[in-house]
Every structure is written in C-alpha cells, then in structure tokens.
Design a protein around this nucleic acid. Sequence first.
DNA 1: CACTTATGCAACCGAAAGGTTGACAACATT
DNA 2: AATGTTGTCAACCTTTCGGTTGCATAAGTG
Lengths: 134, 134
Amino acid sequence: MAEPLPVPMLDPASGSSVDRLNRVFAALADPIRRDIVARLSAADATVGELAEPYEVSTQAVSKHLKVLEDAGLVSRSRDAQKRPCHLEAEVFDLMTKWIERYRRQAEERFSRLDAVLAAMDDENENEDQRGAAS
Amino acid sequence: MAEPLPVPMLDPASGSSVDRLNRVFAALADPIRRDIVARLSAADATVGELAEPYEVSTQAVSKHLKVLEDAGLVSRSRDAQKRPCHLEAEVFDLMTKWIERYRRQAEERFSRLDAVLAAMDDENENEDQRGAAS
DNA sequence: CACTTATGCAACCGAAAGGTTGACAACATT
DNA sequence: AATGTTGTCAACCTTTCGGTTGCATAAGTG
C-alpha cells in the first residue's frame, strides 16, 4: 500500500539537493547561526553589527556567515569595507518541502485505519514495507 | 517599525526550546538520519531493517537512532528482542514554526516598501532592529 | 542449557566543527 | 603618506561526530 514513493536516495553528489539539505540543516543546528538568521529576517546587517551581541570574536562570526552563505541562506554584497548580509529566504522552501512531505505521510498513516488494523494484526505488521525509502 | 518581537536569545539551558532545536536540526543534518526519518514516515521499522540498505554497521545505525531519539524525532518500543522505531512527527511542528516565522517576516519585509524606503534612507537603516529575534 | 538473533555499550580513531589569536588586504579619512 | 575601520585568511587547539571493532545483554529457539 501507498505507492513506492519517489524515494530520495543517499547520493553524496556535491551540489545535489541532498547535499544542499545537509548544509542547510547543519547551518541551522547552531544557535548563533539561527539567531543571525532571525536577526537578518528583520533587516540586512554588516558582520560587525551581527557580531556585536555575542561573546565571540568577529572572526568567529565571519566564519558562521560563511557557513550560512555556503548553505545558500545568506548572500553578501559590498559597500566600501562593509559587507552587508542579506537573508535568502527562498532556501526555507527546500526545508519546508522536505519536512512537510514526510510529516504529511506520517500523519496520513496515523489517521488512516491502517495503524489500528495493523496493530490488530499483531506481529506481522513489520514486513509490509520493504520497498521503503532509498 | 515592526514591534520589538519576542526575542529568543541564546539561552543554552538544556531542555530549552533552543536546545531542542539544536538537536533537531543537527539530527537532520545527516543524510542517513534524514533517510531513516523518510523511511519511518512510511512505516515503523526495527534497527536491523533500517540498517540493511546502508553500508555501515548496525551499531552505527543504532547510534544514529539514538541521536534521532534524543532529538525527539523517534521513539522506541519493544517486541521481543526487536525495538521497533516510530517516527514522532509532532517535532516537525517545532521546526516548521521556527522556519515559517522568519520566512514570513523576511518576505513581509521584502514585499513591503520598507526595504525600498530604507535603502533610500541610505546609511541609517541599520540601527532600527536592535532587539532582534527571539 | 546451548545457540542464534537483535541491540546496546565502551574504547578508540580520524576528520570536521567552533573557537582563539595574529597578520593582512581593502577602503576612508586625515 | 599615515591611520583607523571592517572584514577575511591562516595556523592552532579542543571538542564533537561518525565510523569501527569487540564484548555484553536480552529474548526467542532447538
């Protein structure tokens, strides 16, 4: 039941959607970087401005921004010595799509009677899903 | 413009929402773990079943599952020696909320004339967002 | 009870993350 | 030209990560 599903696959190809997701999720796993994203959602800002609230060096923040940039979450332009950072919100779509896809499927499975029926079927509900993911 | 906003702050308190997000995002930063989540969205599965497709040891997968469990994405029950893994889809809400919040704000800012006006204001658009994010 | 199945735990390892400091490039100002 | 500002690069250190192997544990099966 429930067609085979497109099946994602672990292709490590650099530049692939998988690789992109790796970077985006990893980038947002750090609280400082998430906070930076949060602040950039309100307004563009320079490295110095962004670094100010935290108790780490500007270099550290510069590194964080590089991570965010490599993940495609932030872009930087130039204004004299300053390099204003801008949030690229489109990347959020990538994550949202991934999340929603599996959330929906899980909820679907949960709300359908399948779960209940399977539970009544007792022990053999474990082997009907072999084609799973990739 | 744009009220102060709840402001998140970098509280490292273990168990806090911030800490939770750290773990969830970090958990999903690994392609194998994302794939496991994908497969679990289709059906519960045991460690062995989950490990089979990958070229790593079962212990490695066991570790991955621990990470997912600590992040609250997966729960495990018992069935004889087997420990069926189940996807806890509610956690997705936490991420979705976080993402949508800032995505929306960024888009709002983009679509409103603020950006244009601020740009015309030239240099002084940088100091109106101090209380940032939450 | 011995044996196989299914998992977890501990120790170890190389690589990557996140931080620091110190030098340096680029531009503005004087 | 000299100086200050803004940001990056490079080297280094420590901690975490993802993987391995080997052994222990738990629970069905002969």
